[in-house]
Write a protein that binds this DNA or RNA. Sequence first.
DNA 1: TGAAAATTACCGACCGGTTGGTATGTTTTC
DNA 2: GAAAACATACCAACCGGTCGGTAATTTTCA
Lengths: 221, 221
Amino acid sequence: MSESPAPKPAPEPAGPAKRRRGAARAAMLDATLRRVRRDGWAATTVEAVCAAAGVSKGAFFHHFPSKEALGVAAAERWSQVTGDLFAQAPYHAPADPLARVLGYVAFRRRLLRGAPPDFTCFVGTVVQEAHAASPALRAACGRSIFGHAATLEADLAEAMAARGVDLPGGAAGLARHTQAVLQGAFILAKAGGGAAAAAESVDHLSRYLRLLFDAPERGGP
Amino acid sequence: MSESPAPKPAPEPAGPAKRRRGAARAAMLDATLRRVRRDGWAATTVEAVCAAAGVSKGAFFHHFPSKEALGVAAAERWSQVTGDLFAQAPYHAPADPLARVLGYVAFRRRLLRGAPPDFTCFVGTVVQEAHAASPALRAACGRSIFGHAATLEADLAEAMAARGVDLPGGAAGLARHTQAVLQGAFILAKAGGGAAAAAESVDHLSRYLRLLFDAPERGGP
DNA sequence: TGAAAATTACCGACCGGTTGGTATGTTTTC
DNA sequence: GAAAACATACCAACCGGTCGGTAATTTTCA
């Protein structure tokens, strides 16, 4: 999936202060999410993760067999954190499925504030760097992105059925497209456009959906 | 900008065979484009570039003061190679500006074949990895992406004027959105969707443009 | 014109810092 | 008291970058 606010303003003490047993793993995961979104996957060293999490290198390799395994675990945590965020978001309330879909896009749009590290997607960042070198990481990121897309499918399918809209790729294909627009928006933001450039694209996505569902007779290519 | 076929099936002899003087620099640039599209920026070492180009490390640092400088030069070469490709493409022929715009999208769609390294964008890949660490690289990639977007602006503006379409971001904003969709399509391809997932999104982009220009009264948000 | 001079192109060994990973010891918790 | 949860010290490989040197090319000027 993509994007979210800080996955929790956890205390994260700089030193190995007193912490609940087993908290080290979670601290390393959170540090990984934050660091990678800022610096990228390759530029995030395990020592940097350890320092940010306030643990030693020995602790790191006690919990994770390799940096790659850390990435897979972090991608799964990303899926969970963002999954919760979107599950609890208010856009599910409307009875009209189209309103729920547009509410989702508006919710995403509202998250686009601050600098790229604040709103860009962990798994989107990682998959671009690691897709060739690490099948396991690629798969974990793919599950996150396509899994999140799948959460939109039901609402989209319902809206399409209600308004008689038919598309070549179906609701699933349209759901994937929403994620492509978001991921591309993040790239433009990183290329210098900032949150404004990303928001612009999300606005176009919203407009596309409204055109699509207001004028179902103007179907596919 | 984004994407293209192989930037030239140059001979690129593996060894330091007889070559025209000064060809080393071009060979290194081409090797960089190919390697980075396959492995990413950080995973592409200067020694790998040298090996692929059939030159020594000494030659590399004779032509480029640093790896970062190589990246900037490669981004500029990417702009030039892809600029030529699109300038010579046939989609400029139609008299109707909307036909030219849709021709561009169809042309991009046709390029989506093979594996991600064959159709993804060099500067899009680099900027995601290097935007935080290297302002110079970020700027070079930004120029490439936004510069390519600007080549669509005139046709879009003409089409909008001809059909009475008005949008918040104007023709420039819509041009940037096309690039966001393409960049996002590449991410989905790398996440496991392959060329098919990318093509699906480009189809949605084409549909958006057709809806937008066929129904100008259904304007912005 | 032609050879000396200067510049450019290129080579490959080497260096110092970094990085992922390991081996081993110590503390904490059940 | 044993096992899990840490910490410390260390290592080998790697990577960007440097350096002294050589060959080819171009420029200079008698």
